[in-house]
Design a protein around this nucleic acid. Structure first.
Length: 479
RNA sequence: CGGGGCGUAGCUCAGUUUGGUAGAGUGCUUGGUUUGGGACCAAGAUGCCGCGGGUUCAAGUCCUGUCGCCCCGACCA
């Protein structure tokens, strides 16, 4: 292993204070700037570019599976929000209200959307009459507001960007299939494009989305051993359709209630990437979403021909990669540290010695390994190095998750594992009783994250009460 | 919403104990020398000391109120 000592003094080390490390990175890598409204942040160009890349890839995946984008209003009248009672109960405590238009008090106050189920339902009731109108596979990219009490950039903000898919189907089977399809798309996206391993699972009854019949989620384990929900997919049954009176006439000439789903991922994914791949030198970005995939750094840039060569290489690579040439007059050392902090996956150094030899030095961010490469056919070398970063990041993240996943049969084993090995995922059986779920949390500090779809019977009995248990639950401390 | 910490230059902070000219480092600007792991020299610019009220000859400093931010819990994507 190349030396991993901290090169950037400006970043607090992870081991010292993980929370501070996180905020340092967010600020120093210029992803985000705070504003005067708590929990509302500026996504700076570099941070927003990461989101744009996430958006581009996911949007392609949605379209490839038949979804269409729409744009809903941001205001929901109070009466509309209240139509589905579980849904209101879940969201009422954290909605922001608009009470005035100019100086006039509104007849009915409007909530700023915390999620748009109700808007989609109102719309569906208007446009769906026949089985021929189904399914509708809609998605929207937008911002939403939830008035959180404590906030952290990307992980929990009061306003955030996301996409919300809302689909409506003639049958339960179709809707369930859609719920699973989108969960799988999220998992594929995280693993392939974010190099972040995730566990797919079903949420327990107490952890379901407000108004859902079933909630599925992908759970990822962060570097510090805490769990982060990276995406969710809900099956609504016909509950919303009944509440909003959405009906259609079937082939059999009988009226029926359609079945719905919704699913979403948010800018929290950026937080997940930071806490999955980052290190003490800063951000480490998976190549597919990195705003800059390769940065070209001239060495002794005022010497004859150096800058010209760099520009030439830049032109050569930019057809295939997102490349940046930094010809500012900061010192090379400063630039090394800067682009490491910003997580650029690959750095290309070109100096007088290299030019003479027709080569350059390529350094991969995640392990800081240097390779000398010929300038001829550099594209192939960059492609290979980016793949190496992608693979290396995934392998490291998976390794961390495996090191921090403990199988337990008793509550005491959970406490012991967390104490001796640190926070992580606990795999343990559960009888299905909410009291047991609560008790595990009270006594060990870990909550139910999900019931993994990939079932394993790790014991016969509930980790809490000792009764017969059929559910495997993944437990963890959550962000 | 509970517990803790903090608001002074763009940033990080000292100065508050014991009231008396507004400070440092870094960043920024200009010029020069440098350049393979955050270079160096010189010259410069930068402040409603969070906000309101009070005490005082005098408040960054004391009293009081208020707003905001960060961290840790409970709740949540």
């Amino acid at each position: 292993m190349p030396d991993n000592k901290k090169m950037v003094a400006a970043i607090t080390s992870m081991d010292e204070d993980f929370a501070k490390w996180y905020t340092d990175i967010v600020k120093k890598a210029e992803l985000v700037e705070y504003t005067s409204v708590k929990g509302c942040m500026v996504l700076r160009p570099y941070g927003y570019a990461i989101w744009e890349n996430i958006q581009r890839v996911l949007d392609g995946m949605f379209k490839a599976t038949g979804h269409e984008n729409v744009c809903m209003p941001m205001f929901i009248p109070e009466s509309l929000l209240q139509k589905e009672k579980d849904h209101v109960k879940g969201f009422a405590p954290e909605v922001a209200w608009v009470t005035h238009g100019g100086s006039e008090k509104l007849e009915e106050r409007l909530c700023v959307r915390p999620t748009s189920e109700t808007l989609f339902c109102e719309h569906y009731a208007n446009i769906i009459h026949s089985y021929r109108d189904l399914p509708k596979l809609y998605n929207q990219w937008c911002n939403i507001v939830r008035w959180e009490k404590t906030t952290r950039p990307f992980l929990r903000s009061r306003e955030f960007l996301w996409q919300e898919g809302h689909t409506i189907h003639a049958t339960a089977e179709e809707a369930i299939e859609e719920t699973e399809r989108m969960l799988n798309i999220y998992a594929e996206f995280c693993e392939k494009y974010l190099a972040m391993p995730v566990i797919k699972g079903k949420k327990t009854e107490s952890d379901k989305f407000a108004g859902a019949e079933a909630t599925y989620a992908i759970e990822a384990l962060m570097h510090d051993g805490k769990a982060l929900q990276a995406g969710t997919s809900h099956y609504f049954g016909d509950g919303f359709a009944r509440a909003f009176d959405i009906q259609f006439t079937g082939k059999d000439n009988k009226t029926a209630f359609p079945h719905q789903t919704s699913w979403g991922v948010t800018t929290r994914l950026i937080g997940a990437v930071i806490m999955t791949h980052g290190d003490d030198n800063g951000l480490v970005l998976p190549p597919d979403i990195a705003p800059v995939q390769a940065v070209i750094l001239p060495i002794a840039m005022h010497k004859d021909g150096v800058l010209e060569k760099c520009r030439e290489v830049m032109g050569q690579l930019s057809a295939q990669f997102r490349v940046k040439l930094d010809d500012s007059d900061n010192s090379p050392g400063w630039k090394f540290a800067e682009y490491e902090m910003k997580g650029v996956p690959v750095r290309i150094e070109i100096g007088p010695k290299d030019i003479e030899a027709g080569q350059c030095v390529i350094v991969t961010r995640h392990n800081r390994e240097k390779t000398v490469v010929s300038l001829d056919g550099l594209e192939a070398a960059v492609t290979e190095k980016l793949a190496e970063v992608r693979g290396g990041l995934y392998a490291n993240a998976l390794q961390n998750r495996e090191n921090r996943t403990y199988t337990c049969k008793e509550l005491s084993e959970i406490t012991a594992a967390l104490e001796s090995k640190g926070d992580g995922f606990i795999k343990a059986m559960w009888c299905g009783a909410e009291e047991c779920e609560d008790r595990v949390k009270e006594q060990t500090g870990v909550g139910s994250r999900c019931m993994p779809l990939e079932f394993e019977k790790v014991s016969e009995t509930c980790v809490c009460c000792g009764k017969q248990a059929e559910n495997l639950v993944l437990w963890g401390k959550a962000y």
